[in-house]
Design a protein around this nucleic acid. Structure first.
Lengths: 260, 260
DNA sequence: ACCTGAACACCGTTCAAGT
DNA sequence: ACCTGAACACCGTTCAAGT
């Protein structure tokens, strides 16, 4: 119902986009004509343009006024297609999550869950600014629901109880989404605020020897394979849940407070 | 240097707070006098008030104007103590992270790391609105650095290589912080927008059977013990890295870079 | 040194009016 | 049905002025 790819029914005989029917040698004299012949203002075009704007210039650059300007339209025109800015962002997030590949892949359930989660991770990585906003307040739209459905389906299919599947899904989801707003950690006082008040001076190195030891390993912060490390750790733990008791590797079998 | 608990040097003979020395039976006639005798405007008071405001009314309620009003002061007075709103939020976050208990506890390194992470989790839980903002853009201030220091120190002390410790720390950190902005997931279309446009209607239940199966287990979203489930999974995985993983157990005396 | 009122350059959004 | 300009009720912040 929502899938219906738009080329099926509408577009009877649009008279505006004539492919230069006025003659073979005709060339526009006015160089701004291409810009003036703007495509019609539609909801998908608004959302796509907004996503591109945020990708390129960051979330603060997303202003109804700026977006309207980019679409060469009055700011108020947007409100004919979108209820408010909040809804616009919801739509952008859904567009982003539409990039997640949910198609089945060969392999056991762990492999399939890993591929799905990686694709999810990749979609967020492609839109870091929006991903940060997304993770700061998750809303579940249609595409998000479908991703959930597939992940949970895999967990239930593997034999996890509903309660265990809920825990596992939540842990995976939390980790994946959480990964993205931690992408750009920086010490306060590094930026132009360096000359500022002393409250946020970096602590002297003697106070943080362990941090200093790790500094070279955390420099890039977003290292290759860093996401996969935690992901595989979680997946291994979930798999262990299935064969053993509740927590993955307890020293003794204290099967308490799990309720699976 | 930053610790110095404020009662040491200042306050020579403050004439304003006389504990009613004008006579035993004297009572203020003006009931607004208590409100008028406002304490001095200081940086800590501003930050504390801002944190309370956000705790009670949410982040959008934090307005320089609203904060000033709560402090019974002109909005511009704040700028004498705080560079801008961004810095104010940094200070609030540092105040929140100051609530984390970093004191050593009995037990092995896993236990200690677990206690530390739980305290971290608890501090964020106490200030959900600010925690969400924090996780959407992490900045590392003094208290954050000290927490890092302790966590990383435990990992290194356990024998993890710097690279492995970095991965482990990042996974733990990611999971913990990520947990908090996922606290209030809700399906779009549930709130007052229910009567709105059809884009965000919930998908029909037939399309999401697995989600529906889990629905009763995800209702509260923030279940008790849910955080601990993922945490223990991660800790078990990290511990496994130590016994099985690449660095083959440095039982020899490598007293490097640990420093008490 | 600290506080203030007025003003500036923005926001998202409402409204009445255009076609 | 869709778009527009003007206007409203906000923001954070600058500035010149007060004490």
């Amino acid at each position: 119902m929502t899938e219906q790819p738009s080329a099926s029914r509408a577009r009877p005989d649009r008279p505006d986009r004539p492919d230069r029917p006025d003659g073979p040698g005709w060339v526009s004299v006015d160089p701004s004509e291409d810009e003036q012949r703007r495509p019609p203002l539609t909801r998908p075009r608004i959302v796509r343009t907004a996503l591109r704007l945020v990708d390129e210039k960051g979330l603060p650059a997303l202003t109804m006024r700026a977006l309207a300007q980019q679409l060469k339209v009055s700011p108020m025109a947007l409100y004919n297609h979108v209820h408010d800015k909040e809804e616009l962002i919801d739509l952008m997030i859904d567009l982003m999550l539409g990039e997640v590949d949910r198609s089945p892949v060969p392999g056991d359930w762990v492999t399939q869950l890993r591929v799905l989660t990686c694709s999810y991770h990749q979609a967020l990585s492609a839109h870091p600014a929006l991903a940060r906003r997304y993770s700061s307040q998750v809303r579940i739209g249609p595409h998000g629901l479908l991703i959930m459905e597939r992940a949970i389906g895999l967990l239930l299919g593997a034999g996890l109880s509903p309660a265990a599947a809920a825990d596992a899904f939540f842990a995976l989801f939390t980790y994946t989404v959480g990964f993205h707003q931690l992408g750009q950690i920086r010490r306060v006082s590094d930026p132009k605020r360096q000359d500022e008040t002393g409250y946020y001076v970096a602590l002297p190195a003697e106070q943080i020897p362990a941090v200093m030891t790790l500094a070279p390993h955390m420099s890039g912060v977003r290292q290759d394979g860093q996401f996969e490390y935690g992901l595989d750790t979680l997946l291994a733990g979930i798999k262990a849940t299935l064969t053993q008791g509740s927590p993955p590797r307890p020293s003794t079998d204290k099967t308490e407070a799990h309720g699976g």
